Computed example of a mutant assay.
Amino acid sequence: MPPSHVLVPLDGSPLADEALAHAIDTFDCPVTVLNVVTPLDSSMSEGGIVGNDESRREAAHERANELIETARRRAAESGRNLDTAVEMGEPAETILEYVDDHDVDHIIMGGHGGSQSELVSRLLGTVATTVVSEAPVTVTVVR
């Protein structure tokens, strides 16, 4: 049975962009892109290492909005509209909560890989691994 609502978490990585392209090209249903802004005092944020201030918070929200707008433009090129959301929280937990709260029945997300540092690679892999193991819906990981 094809999904009725697909969620694509976006983090600005090339694999997340590929996940969005896959969702748009494959499914004829509403697609929502979600960017999770990680709190600056989180262990999964640069703020856990380098201080917490308002300018960093603003920059994180601006980046999230830029990712969302880029996704909208890409979808429009394919004649599609996207629903969009920006949430604050721990990435995997926030993705799973969004699924529960918004009747999502399929998640398409990028896995980790590429030339990222070992730390970043492990963190991105951790998010995908957690979502795959805990999501109550089908998860497609694009690699």
Score class of each variant (00 low, 15 high):
Glu90Asn: 11
Glu62Thr: 13
Glu66Cys: 10
Ala23His: 07
Asp25Trp: 08
His112Ser: 09
Ser133Asp: 09
Val131Ala: 06
Val132Cys: 12
Ala16Thr: 02
Gly125Asp: 06
Glu58Thr: 08
Gly79Asp: 05
Ala135Glu: 01
Leu15Val: 07
Met44Tyr: 13
Glu58Phe: 05
Arg143Trp: 10
Ala85Asn: 15
Gly51Pro: 12
Ala76Gln: 09
Val104Glu: 05
Asp103Gln: 12
Ala92Thr: 06
Val37Trp: 11
Arg57Asn: 11
Pro2Trp: 14
His22Tyr: 15
Ala59Arg: 14
Cys29His: 01
Gly113Ser: 02
Val86Lys: 06
Leu82Met: 08
Pro2Ala: 11
Val31Ser: 02
Thr138Asn: 15
Ser13Ile: 00
Ile68Val: 15
Glu18Leu: 15
Leu123Ala: 12
Val127His: 00
Thr38Lys: 12
Thr126Asn: 13
Ser42Arg: 04
Arg80Phe: 01
Thr32Cys: 12
Val127Asp: 01
Phe27His: 08
Thr129Lys: 07
Glu77Cys: 04
Ile68Gln: 05
Asp103Thr: 11
Thr140Val: 07
Asp28Ala: 10
Ala19Ile: 11
Glu134Gln: 12
His106Pro: 10
Asp83Thr: 12
Pro2Asp: 13
Glu18Asn: 15
Cys29Leu: 02
Ile24Phe: 00
Pro30Val: 02
Asp53Ser: 14
Ser78Leu: 02
Leu40Tyr: 04
Ala85His: 15
Ile107Gln: 03
Val142Ile: 15
Glu77Tyr: 02
Glu77Phe: 03
Thr26Tyr: 11
Ile108His: 05
Met1Ala: 13
Ile24Met: 06
Ser121Lys: 11
Arg56Asp: 15
Val99Glu: 09
Ala71Cys: 01
Thr70Val: 02
Ala128Leu: 00
Val127Tyr: 04
Gly111Ala: 04
Asp11Glu: 01
Asp101His: 14
Val139Gln: 00
Asp101Leu: 13
Ser78Trp: 00
Glu97Leu: 09
Val127Lys: 02
Gly125Trp: 06
Pro2Gly: 09
Ser115Arg: 05
Val37Glu: 10
Ser133Val: 04
Val31Asn: 04
Leu82Phe: 08
Ala135Leu: 01
Arg63Trp: 07
Ala64Lys: 03
Ser43Ile: 07
Glu93Ala: 10
Asp105Ala: 09
Pro14Gly: 07
Asp83Cys: 07
Phe27Pro: 04
Leu20Cys: 03
Ala76Thr: 06
Arg56Phe: 15
Val139Asn: 00
Gly114Arg: 02
Ile68Tyr: 03
Asn35His: 15
Ala59Asp: 14
Met44Val: 11
Leu20Thr: 02
Val132Phe: 10
Leu96His: 05
Ser55Lys: 14
Asp101Pro: 09
Val104Pro: 05
Gly110Gln: 00
Glu62Val: 10
Arg72His: 08
Asp100Arg: 11
Ser45Asp: 06
Asp105Gln: 04
Met1Thr: 12
Arg143Asp: 11
Val104Tyr: 07
Gly79Val: 08
Met109Phe: 03
Arg74His: 00
Glu54Val: 12
Arg57His: 13
Gly113Gln: 01
Glu58Val: 10
Ala16Val: 03
Gly51Arg: 13
